Simulated scan of single mutants.
Amino acid sequence: MQPLVEPFFDSVTSTLTYVVHAGAGSVCAIIDSVLDFDPKSARTATCSADRVIAFVREQHLTVEWLLETHAHADHLSAAQYLKRTFGGRIAIGEQIRTVQRTFQGVFNVEVDAAADGAQFDHLFAPDETFTVGALAARAIHVPGHTPADMAYVIGNATFVGDTLFMPDVGSARCDFPGGDAHALYHSVRKLLSLPQETRLFMCHDYPPPSRNVCWETTVAEQRRTNIHLHDGVSESDFVEMRTRRDATLSMPTLILPSIQVNIRAGALPRPESNGIRYLKIPLDLL
């Protein structure tokens, strides 16, 4: 059985959320949801997630999984909001503990963000198999962008997170704490060893002016035309290119609020004595 994939593009963060299911009335997984956040006012909103909710209700789907490909640095996760609405298990790769340990020091976070992964309902081991209703699925560990990145193979569809972008955009940066361009190269080769016809779904798209936003490609297309990682690109050439390119990139606008929330499985910090929640901004660190 092959999955149906419904994409939701958030233009503010260039993020794709996916609902993966087998048809109306079936079980589904929601991948990489978005909680809206205005960095100027620090206000949250649920417009992006509400679009997903409307679709799930229209199709009479049962949410089994709320999957995160990694602890995103460019948007806040809406997993907790969706779980309150539908239930389901929030899941990520087990190496999220490494990311939590790294950012515990950055943010000096309190006990509700302990580095044990317990904030998530399930932590996937590398190559762990699972199901989305009648759909067979597998979690693949694809480190490089972060130590904890996962890709999810569901039927003939693979959700690659921030390993690959569309072929004319290339690959994800590797200069965040714990990132590793060598590891990303090997992660991508692992993904591109899947069958040629495998559908690959991107976590983001940053299109050049010559085309509209796209999010689906194939293993064959990536191997043939990816500007950073097409067949024939050596590990050393990729690492040299990625290191040089990363040195020119500024930090994502939402990295500081996003990471604090996403290592908590999308939970906001606890209210302080005045009833207000606060995010921390470390000075002169990143």
Rank of each mutant, 00 (worst) to 15 (best):
D50F: 04
A49M: 10
N212A: 14
T243N: 09
G133L: 05
R223C: 13
V233F: 03
S258V: 14
V56C: 08
G93W: 05
K40H: 08
P177W: 05
F107R: 02
H60V: 09
D74A: 14
V132R: 11
A114R: 13
R223Q: 11
A247Y: 08
A148H: 14
M251N: 12
S187I: 05
V99T: 15
G133F: 03
A24F: 02
A151F: 10
E6Y: 09
L200Y: 00
P269T: 04
E6L: 10
C47F: 14
A24C: 08
E235C: 13
M150T: 10
Y18T: 00
G178P: 08
Y185A: 01
F238I: 04
R101D: 04
D231C: 00
Y152C: 03
R138T: 15
G179I: 10
V233P: 05
A115F: 12
R51I: 05
R189A: 04
Y152N: 03
A79I: 05
A49I: 06
T44C: 15
T98G: 06
P195G: 00
W65L: 12
M251I: 07
G179A: 11
T243G: 12
V160I: 11
P269I: 01
V142D: 05
L283H: 12
R244N: 06
H72C: 05
G232H: 07
T158E: 03
D180R: 04
D116H: 03
E58I: 02
Q80S: 12
G275I: 09
G117D: 01
V56T: 12
S26N: 00
R101Q: 02
H186L: 12
H21I: 07
L279M: 06
T85V: 10
F86P: 11
E58F: 05
A137P: 15
T129D: 15
H228G: 00
H230S: 01
P143S: 00
R224L: 10
M241D: 06
Q222R: 03
F238Y: 15
D162K: 10
D246T: 06
P271Q: 08
D205W: 04
V213H: 00
Q100K: 13
S236V: 11
V111I: 15
T225M: 06
G161Q: 02
R43I: 08
D36L: 09
E235W: 03
V56D: 06
F37K: 09
F238N: 00
A172R: 10
R84P: 08
T217Q: 00
D112H: 06
G144T: 11
H75V: 15
T131V: 14
A71C: 13
A91F: 10
L192W: 07
D116L: 09
S33H: 04
A220R: 07
A181W: 04
S193V: 03
I53N: 05
T15L: 05
G170I: 13
L16S: 08
A125F: 07
S210M: 11
G155F: 06
L268K: 03
H204Q: 13
R224K: 13
G23L: 08
V63T: 11
A183Q: 14
P282S: 02
R264Y: 00
H145N: 08
